[in-house]
């Protein structure tokens, strides 16, 4: 369903192959992946565990080098991590010796900027995700969901153009995951950034995304892309509608057909 009227994509993944190891131990994690991420969209990478989703995301974030193929970000070839790309992982990765606020301000220190310039913004973000009261608490005093919210604030502090989310709710329980996902959608919209979410949860992928890129089992390649037409903001009860259930069924079928 690609049309020629699209503006240039924010990210273009071009024939990306990733092999780990060499010789007998060589393992193809990703095989000829082609993908475009449009400016402002929410895209999910959906596939079974071990199919190379994280590998693909890490290559898009400049953390890993592709064995073959290229990644273009904002029109330029990406070879290393980029300030305008923010990453979130399955673990919140909060440093236990830092308070919530200090954790959120970590990028400021790394970038060599003045902390005090960013405190108001950090506090605003903490307030938006409802953990402002915990700004001086340490991560171990926070629940997993709260930690992940703080990690979200940290990644949004510098208004990344692209958010790369590697199962950020994967370690959370079902209820926390739902509200965290809502938070993600709200803040992605607020920050007007583009998001790529890696998940192996079909419902989550459909609920969150404008498009769902379905990947095959290893070696990972793109099976198809499902367009998700529902309006935003999306409310949890969307998940009980017929159209939603049909799309989920379609995605499931694609995953099982391979």
């Amino acid at each position: 369903m690609t049309t020629m009227t699209q503006t240039a994509p924010l990210v273009r993944v071009d024939g990306v192959t990733k092999r780990f190891g060499s010789g007998d131990k060589e393992m193809v994690a990703l095989s000829g992946l082609n993908l475009e991420v449009r400016e402002g969209e929410f895209l999910s990478l959906l596939g079974p565990s071990g199919c190379g989703k994280s590998t693909a995301l890490n290559i898009m974030g400049g953390l890993l080098e592709a064995t073959e193929g290229t990644v273009t970000f904002s029109g330029e070839q990406l070879t290393e991590p980029n300030r305008h790309i923010g990453m979130m992982f399955q673990q919140a990765v909060m440093f236990p010796w830092r308070t919530t606020l200090e954790n959120v301000l970590l990028p400021v220190e790394i970038f060599g900027e003045k902390k005090k310039d960013f405190i108001p913004k950090a506090e605003e973000l903490l307030e938006m995700v409802g953990i402002k009261d915990f700004r001086d608490s340490y991560p171990w005093q926070l629940s997993g969901g709260m930690q992940q919210r703080a990690a979200l604030c940290r990644v949004l502090l510098h208004d990344p153009k692209l958010l790369l989310l590697d199962e950020p709710c994967g370690a959370l329980d079902e209820f926390t995951r739902e509200s965290m996902n809502q938070e993600l959608l709200r803040l992605q919209d607020y920050a007007k950034s583009t998001a790529v979410l890696v998940t192996h949860n079909i419902t989550e992928a459909v609920f969150m995304s404008d498009r769902v890129a379905v990947m095959s089992a290893r070696p990972g390649r793109l099976v198809d892309i499902i367009e998700v037409p529902f309006d935003r903001p999306r409310r949890p009860d969307l998940q009980t509608t017929n159209d939603f259930i049909k799309l989920v069924a379609k995605a499931r079928q694609m995953l099982e057909l391979q």
């Binding site: 974030g61 953390l63 991590p81 980029n82 790309i85 923010g86 990453m87 992982f89 790394i110 970038f111």
Partner: peptide
Amino acid sequence: ALMKSLRA
């Protein structure tokens, strides 16, 4: 990986 993504 987080530090790397921040170009530390």
